[in-house]
């Protein structure tokens, strides 16, 4: 996934749901397609596909998705089935679980990381580790 980051980002732009910057969503948001969040969301967020969290987005919810690109703020547990990309403007307060992760310098993460093994990939770093508590 990370090798084709640009391609994947382009694909997610054709999202099924877009929460714009001037929108506030409250409740249990469950989708099947790609979701882009640029505004604010409170409650829970779940999708069977990819999630893109914009720089100005504020999510106070437990998040469940297949893949995720996070550039904004998330307060809640983040459970990603496959790959998680955390951008330099991201701020995550909560536990994170995923199969693979990429973290840019500048991201703020407060919580535990649980890396679950990929079903097909072998020989990659696995296990559970404590995430950095301070700003990188």
């Amino acid at each position: 996934m990370f090798g084709n980051k640009e391609k994947n980002l382009e694909k997610i732009k054709d999202a099924e749901t877009i929460i714009g910057g001037s929108i506030k969503v409250k409740g249990n948001f469950h989708g099947k397609g790609n979701i882009i969040v640029e505004g604010s969301l409170e409650g829970s967020l779940k999708t069977d596909a990819s999630l893109l969290v914009g720089e100005k987005a504020k999510i106070s919810a437990n998040v469940l998705a297949k893949d995720a690109f996070v550039n904004g703020s998330i307060t809640g547990n983040v459970k990603i089935e496959k790959d998680l990309f955390i951008g330099k403007t991201a701020k995550i307060t909560g536990d994170i679980s995923c199969e693979q992760v990429s973290i840019e310098k500048g991201a703020i993460i407060n919580g535990n990381f649980i890396m679950s093994p990929a079903s097909s990939d072998k020989g990659q770093e696995r296990g559970s580790e404590k995430a950095p508590q301070a700003k990188k």
């Binding site: 749901t17 877009i18 929460i19 714009g20 910057g21 001037s22 929108i23 397609g33 640029e38």
Partner: peptide
């Protein structure tokens, strides 16, 4: 919902 050309929302 459209706020501007760059800022819009879309929900099924």
């Amino acid at each position: 919902i459209e706020n501007s050309n760059q800022d819009y929302s879309f929900f099924p």
